[in-house]
Computed example of a mutant assay.
Amino acid sequence: MEYVSPCRCGNEQVKLALPSPLQSYQSRAFDCDFCMVQKAAYLSDPVGKLEVIYSHKRQGVMQDAKQAIFWHVPKPHSG
């Protein structure tokens, strides 16, 4: 099954390919302090594929234990 969704900003897109329907997976919450603040959740499948298509500069935020980088598009400055 393939899923495509835009980012909240509308400029980025995520493509997710999984062997089973999305509803058959159970999301899991990260329990470290960094991830809890970010409200991060995940699901996994060893044969799944995730593709992020971006058109703007991304900013990486390193998780405290240096095990993961979270990529996001910086919020536009209002001025």
Rank of each mutant, 00 (worst) to 15 (best):
V37C: 00
D33Q: 09
A41Y: 09
S27R: 13
A41L: 03
Q38D: 02
C32L: 00
C32F: 01
S44T: 12
K49S: 13
D45R: 10
L43C: 04
V37R: 04
Q23L: 05
I53T: 09
V52M: 10
L22N: 04
P46D: 12
V52L: 14
D45E: 13
Q26C: 05
L50N: 04
P21S: 03
S27P: 09
K39V: 00
S24A: 12
A40G: 14
V47W: 05
P46V: 12
L22R: 08
K39E: 12
A40T: 02
C32Q: 02
E51A: 10
R28M: 09
Y25K: 11
Q26R: 13
V47N: 14
P46W: 13
D33K: 12
R28Y: 07
C32K: 03
K49F: 06
Y25Q: 06
P21N: 08
V47L: 11
D31T: 12
C35D: 05
P21R: 04
V52D: 01
Y42D: 01
K39D: 05
E51M: 14
F34H: 05
A40M: 04
V47E: 15
G48F: 10
L43Q: 04
V52Q: 03
F34M: 04
V47P: 00
Y42N: 00
Q23M: 04
S27G: 03
L43T: 01
E51D: 09
L43I: 15
C32S: 07
E51Y: 07
Q23R: 11
V47M: 12
L22E: 05
A40E: 06
S27V: 11
L22P: 07
F30G: 06
M36N: 12
G48V: 06
S24Y: 08
Q23K: 10
I53S: 09
K49L: 15
S24I: 00
P21K: 02
L22Q: 06
L50K: 11
V37K: 12
P21G: 02
R28N: 10
L43M: 14
Q26S: 13
Y25C: 02
P46T: 15
S27N: 11
A40S: 14
Q26Y: 02
S20H: 15
Y25F: 15
D45Y: 09
G48I: 10
D45F: 07
D45G: 07
F30Y: 15
